[in-house]
């Protein structure tokens, strides 16, 4: 019988959370440039309330010991929840999003796996409850007051534009072309527009061995292939392929949501399978319900199915029979 290790590696929960924050940093910086200081207010509120609410949940609901009431991952989840909002959202929105995030963060399957990705759950709930507000996008470089609790409706309407996904719902592609979309001069939620910044962050993540590069690649490649195989009726195929990939938080999902360890299968094969199924379902969803951001709901379904996928794809323990390995 073994005993416990007397040493531990340098990787801690804090260092892992820091890696995720560093990966999100380029997106945050770019978003502040594109949408102004209001991004900082929204993110700060979301992160702050995530920490505060989670502290209360841990202390009073779970009676967690003093040292583990503050989770550094609240910064990651809070930031992601804010990044999946439009910049014109009122300041109560990140507070409510933080509440959804903390609620999802504390729902576990068999005491170990989280049932839903917290920030995706938050984004999905906010989209369901406040669809009009959450899909109200304004054009880049139109800066709003950072501290206005609610932005005046007239002002929003003045700068309101359709997002690339909303363009595609009409059967065409984003009229400003692909390069602005790739660099991040397009409209959408705060975090989804900066494709280049998201890719830079993903490089850091994969270099730090955080996440599964194969899963992300499978997702993107499959979307690419499907979009090429089933193009929109009057859209130019190559534009449509990249437009599909760059619109509607697709890259954000590929980089961050598919690599959230607590809600995705831990083994590589499981992640690849989940990524592939997500790609197919999201693409099919977009075809069936044009303009509807089904990515969040597909990810939530994938989260719920992950424990079972993990069980089915668990590598066989050497020396055991196949049947026994699956029974676990």
């Amino acid at each position: 019988m073994s005993v416990m290790p007397a040493a531990h590696s340098g990787e801690t929960r804090l260092s892992k959370a820091s890696d995720r924050l560093i990966a999100l940093l380029p997106v945050l910086i770019w978003s502040v440039y594109i949408f102004g200081a209001r991004v900082i207010t929204l993110c700060a509120l979301s992160v702050g309330f995530c920490f505060g609410l989670d502290y209360f949940v841990q202390r009073y609901a779970f009676r967690a010991p003093a040292g583990v009431r503050t989770d550094p991952y609240n910064a990651v989840y809070g930031l992601c929840a804010a990044l999946l909002m439009p910049v014109a959202a009122p300041l109560w929105a990140p507070v409510l999003a933080a509440a959804f995030t903390v609620a999802a963060k504390n729902i576990h399957y068999r005491d170990t796996r989280r049932v839903f990705n917290p920030y995706i759950f938050s984004a999905a709930a906010m989209n369901l409850l406040f669809r009009g507000m959450m899909t109200c996008y304004t054009r880049p470089l139109a800066y709003f007051n950072a501290f206005s609790f609610v932005i005046d409706g007239g002002l929003i309407e003045k700068y309101r534009v359709l997002s690339p996904l909303q363009y595609m719902a009409g059967g065409s592609v984003y009229e400003d072309g692909l390069l602005p979309q790739f660099i991040g001069f397009s409209q959408g939620t705060i975090g989804e527009i900066a494709i280049l910044a998201l890719m830079l962050g993903s490089v850091w993540m994969f270099l730090r061995r955080d996440g599964n590069v194969l899963g992300t690649f499978t997702f993107c490649a499959l979307i690419f292939v499907l979009a090429y195989a089933f193009p929109s009726k009057d859209a130019e195929p190559v534009y449509y392929v990249f437009g599909t990939l760059f619109s509607g938080a697709m890259i954000f999902i590929a980089v961050h949501a598919l690599n959230d360890g607590a809600t995705m299968p831990m083994n590589s094969l499981g992640r690849v399978i989940v990524a592939a199924v997500c790609a197919v379902l999201i693409f099919a969803g977009r075809k069936i319900f044009p303009g509807f951001e089904c990515g969040y709901y597909v990810i939530l379904a994938a989260n719920a199915a992950s424990p079972f996928v993990e069980k089915l794809t668990r590598p066989r323990v050497p020396g055991t029979k196949k049947k026994a390995a699956k029974s676990g």
């Binding site: 990787e11 929960r13 892992k16 583990v68 989770d71 991952y73 399957y109 068999r110 005491d111 170990t112 796996r113 989280r114 955080d210 599964n212 959230d260 360890g261 607590a262 809600t263 995705m264 831990m266 083994n267 993990e310 668990r314 590598p315 066989r316 323990v317 050497p318 055991t320 026994a324 390995a325 029974s327 676990g328």
Partner: peptide, 28 residues
């Protein structure tokens, strides 16, 4: 709490997912 990073699964020489023991699963 477990963050599901999969580091334990990657480090296991016999291809187990040690974190499964958290949920009471994984008798094999």
């Amino acid at each position: 709490p477990c963050i599901g990073c999969g580091a334990c699964a990657a480090a296991c020489p016999v291809k187990l997912i040690p974190a499964e023991a958290l949920g009471g699963a994984g008798a094999e």
